[in-house]
Deep mutational scan, measured.
Amino acid sequence: VTTYKLVINGKTLKGETTTKAVDAETAEKAFKQYANDNGVDGVWTYDDATKTFTVTEMV
């Protein structure tokens, strides 16, 4: 189990959260659900070296 981080660069919501998951795919599903629940829709990137997902909403 690995800890993954999500950085949110939203128009109205900004911040970070973490989740523990067995792999990046599982973490991504959890983060996308979290973003969807919070009304964040944007471009996703993932950095495997730092285990960090970033979602950026276009203005």
Rank of each mutant, 00 (worst) to 15 (best):
T12N: 14
T19V: 12
E28T: 04
F31C: 03
D37Q: 13
D41S: 15
V55W: 02
L13P: 04
Y34N: 02
T56C: 06
N9L: 13
G42D: 01
T2V: 14
K32I: 07
A27S: 02
I8D: 01
A27W: 01
M58E: 11
K51C: 06
E57M: 06
T45P: 00
V40G: 02
D23L: 04
K29R: 13
V22M: 10
T45K: 06
W44S: 00
W44F: 04
N36T: 15
E57K: 04
E57P: 09
L13F: 14
E57W: 10
D23Q: 04
D47M: 03
A49E: 14
T12R: 08
V43D: 07
T12F: 14
F31S: 01
N38T: 07
V55I: 08
F31Y: 02
W44A: 01
T52R: 03
K14M: 09
F53W: 05
K29L: 11
V43T: 11
V1K: 08
T2S: 11
T52E: 04
D23I: 03
A49S: 13
K5N: 06
T2Q: 14
N38C: 12
A49I: 15
K29F: 07
V7Y: 09
Y46P: 00
F53S: 00
T56V: 08
N38A: 10
N38Y: 11
M58C: 14
L13C: 13
A35C: 11
V1G: 08
A27P: 00
T2H: 15
G39Y: 06
T2F: 15
L13T: 09
V1I: 09
M58H: 13
D37L: 12
A30K: 15
N36E: 12
K29M: 09
L6D: 00
V22Y: 10
V40D: 01
D23W: 04
N36Y: 14
D37K: 09
K5M: 07
G39C: 07
N9D: 11
L6G: 01
D23C: 05
V43M: 11
V40A: 03
T19K: 05
V7C: 06
G15R: 13
T3F: 07
E25M: 10
V22H: 09
L6A: 02
D47T: 04
M58A: 14
A24N: 06
V22W: 09
W44E: 00
A30Q: 10
N9P: 03
T18M: 12
A24I: 12
V59E: 14
K29T: 10
T54C: 05
W44Q: 00
E57Y: 07
T50I: 07
K14Y: 08
V7W: 05
E57S: 07
T12C: 13
A21S: 06
Y46L: 02
T2P: 08
T17M: 13
V55Q: 01
I8R: 02
K14G: 06
V7F: 08
K20N: 15
I8V: 08
E16Q: 15
V59S: 12
M58P: 12
E16I: 12
K32V: 08
I8W: 08
K14F: 12
V7E: 04
T18Y: 13
K14A: 07
